[in-house]
Amino acid sequence: MNPRTRKALEFVLDNLVWFMLLFVLVVFSIFVPNYFQLGIFANIIEASSVLGVMSIGLALVIIAGHMDLSVESVAALSAMAVGILFCSSGIGMGVQLHPEWLMVPVSLLLALAVGGLIGAFNGYLVVKVKMSAFIITLASYIWVRGLVLVVSGGRSAQDLAPAIRWFGIQRLVGLPLTAWIAVGCFVVFSLIMAKTPFGRHLVMIGGNETATFRAGIRVNRNLIIAFVLAGAIAGLAGWLLAIRTSGATANLGVGLLFNAFAAVVIGGGS
């Protein structure tokens, strides 16, 4: 095969998902009346922002040769924690901070901390205790979702503080700020995976963990960091969920896990 043709074919195969997306958008724009509108595309991006963020954290663990089935429940627990503290109706406590803008970083840090702690717990059992990631994270999927039910009593938290909900209302260049957060996460972690030793080490671990260890790379540390990041990013997804729904319910995010796995696999995660 001609080298130039081969290179072009490799480019098409590496970016096949983007060509498929473009094809779908063109077909829908032609055959669905009033589909080709910036507002509709903005809504699609906004609706997929939570799933996109969750998929980024899941991809880190999958690239490293493991899996994390707990991300959906972690997002729900993080959203419920934010909802209980900063919602004013239902089971919300209506906590107020002054100045009001402080509620944004505090709620975000709370969501990241909840997710990161569960991720650290999963990572410790997988790496140090040598338990199966499938079993551990499946158990976490169950007990974390159960914890959401226990904490909430099956009830919902409503009317999220306006300072936090502001992120779900404001737009920048036609896109909601929540969508820009998802785009920012994608760019940052793409650079981390492509340009940093940590990213390259994760790929090596996923390819051959034993050989990577014998090459002098700290496999255990990198794996634990991957699980912590997956949990923290799931917490960020939960924060975005709370903003989108202006609160949290006991069944928030049900079904996101399988969509996140599909997104990672279709997106090229091995």
Rank of each mutant, 00 (worst) to 15 (best):
M204Q: 09
R221Q: 11
F134G: 14
V129D: 07
M1H: 02
V254F: 04
E209N: 02
M1E: 05
V95K: 00
N222H: 12
L160H: 01
N222V: 07
A262L: 10
E46C: 08
G92L: 04
P176R: 14
V187A: 14
R221K: 13
N122K: 07
I233Y: 05
N208F: 04
N222C: 09
L51E: 13
V188C: 03
I192Q: 03
Y35V: 13
L117H: 00
A133I: 06
F198D: 12
F186I: 12
H66P: 03
A215C: 15
G253Q: 01
V148M: 00
S190N: 13
E100C: 00
A47N: 15
T178V: 15
F213I: 07
A59S: 15
P176T: 14
G123D: 09
G146H: 01
P105G: 12
A163G: 06
V173I: 03
G83D: 06
F258R: 05
L51H: 13
V254E: 12
P162A: 08
E46V: 12
I169M: 15
L77F: 03
V32H: 02
L149N: 08
E72Y: 08
P99T: 04
L229Q: 12
T245V: 15
L109V: 12
L60Y: 04
S132E: 10
F11L: 10
F167E: 02
W143L: 04
L252K: 02
W180K: 05
V188G: 01
V183C: 08
I84M: 14
F23M: 15
G174K: 06
L102Y: 02
V82I: 08
Y124K: 00
M193N: 08
G52W: 04
P33Q: 01
I205P: 11
G83K: 01
F19C: 08
I136C: 03
A237L: 06
S107I: 04
Y35S: 13
V126R: 02
P3D: 02
I118C: 00
L202I: 05
G184S: 13
I142K: 00
F134K: 07
Q96S: 09
N122V: 13
L51P: 14
L240P: 10
